[in-house]
Simulated assay, not measured.
Amino acid sequence: MSSKNLETRLRILEVTLQMLEENRGQGVRMADIAKCANVSRQAIYLHFASRAELLNATTKFLDERLDLDRRLAPSRAASSGQDRLALYVEFWGNYIPEIYGVAKALLLVLDSDDAAAAAWQERMAAMRHGCRAAIDMLHSEHRLASEWTPESATDVLCTMLSVANWENFTSVCGWSNQQYVERMKAIAERSLLKNESAP
């Protein structure tokens, strides 16, 4: 890709990200993005085949900007399943506030915007993958509580870490983000880890 094309692509992503955050996802149309990015609609479609592709690329662009891989490295390098679980909860709990503007924008229009729904589903699939990796490590070490299968434990962990739950605890219940992280780590460990002292 030429430097000019790369510059145009980055400008489109920057504008899309800004518009999603400012407008909470409402009325973010390709024509509006093109106008704000000072490019034609055709130029956008040269870089992104569909609005769904653009929204998905925007979430990945945000991940790159926030250095997602570096921030996931501690949980990926954990030496035990318990550590991986705690580090993943900590990572995600601290990551939500930084992606909340885009997340909220997509969540608000899920029912009426197929492109936003597709972008959100891909984002949640990536989050689920991180949850499953921690659960699988616990399971391989025989530390997963016996009432859970890896699948059901992953279901529970994903639901616990949902953006909606974070929003409720921090906005409605008044928890600080630090309280959210520490309490969710404790809840996850108590709920999902085998009690080693049990007979």
Rank of each mutant, 00 (worst) to 15 (best):
H139G: 00
W120N: 01
Q179W: 02
A198W: 12
I44H: 03
L157R: 09
V181S: 03
D136V: 02
L144Q: 12
L72N: 00
L13S: 09
S171I: 05
T159W: 07
R183C: 04
A133W: 00
N165T: 03
T8K: 13
A186L: 13
V89R: 11
K194E: 14
A117N: 01
Q82H: 06
L110V: 09
S80P: 04
R123F: 11
I96R: 04
S162E: 10
M19G: 01
A134F: 08
E90V: 02
R29Q: 08
D67E: 14
I44T: 03
F169R: 07
I12F: 10
G27T: 02
Y100M: 04
S75Y: 09
L66H: 06
W175C: 02
E151D: 15
L68K: 12
L87D: 09
R128P: 03
L20T: 06
Q82G: 07
L68N: 01
D83M: 09
H139D: 15
P97D: 12
I99Y: 11
I12N: 10
A49K: 14
K4S: 13
D69H: 12
D111N: 14
A73D: 12
T16W: 05
P74S: 11
H142S: 11
L108P: 01
L87V: 04
L192M: 05
A125K: 15
F91A: 04
D114Q: 15
V89G: 08
R41M: 10
S2N: 14
R132I: 00
E64L: 12
L10Q: 15
S80A: 04
R70A: 15
L106S: 09
V28P: 10
M1S: 15
C131M: 03
L17C: 09
A78S: 07
S80V: 05
D67W: 05
E147K: 14
S140R: 14
R123D: 07
V39N: 05
H142A: 09
H47Y: 07
S50R: 07
T154L: 12
W166H: 14
R183P: 04
K104Y: 11
A116K: 05
L66T: 02
L55V: 03
M137F: 13
T58L: 04
L20E: 11
A198D: 14
D155L: 02
E21R: 15
M137T: 06
L85H: 05
A118S: 12
L54C: 07
P150Q: 08
N56E: 12
D136S: 09
L107W: 04
L13K: 08
N177T: 08
S3G: 02
T59L: 01
L72M: 14
L107R: 11
S146H: 12
L55P: 00
V28S: 10
D114N: 13
E141N: 07
L55F: 13
S140K: 13
M19V: 00
A73L: 13
A105K: 07
H129E: 15
Y88E: 13
N38T: 07
S140G: 09
L62G: 02
A119D: 13
S50K: 10
A116H: 02
N23T: 10
L85N: 01
R9M: 12
S112G: 11
S3F: 11
V102H: 06
A116R: 08
A49W: 02
V156D: 01
Q178T: 09
W120P: 00
I96G: 01
K35N: 11
E189G: 03
G101W: 09
R11W: 00
A31Y: 03
L72K: 15
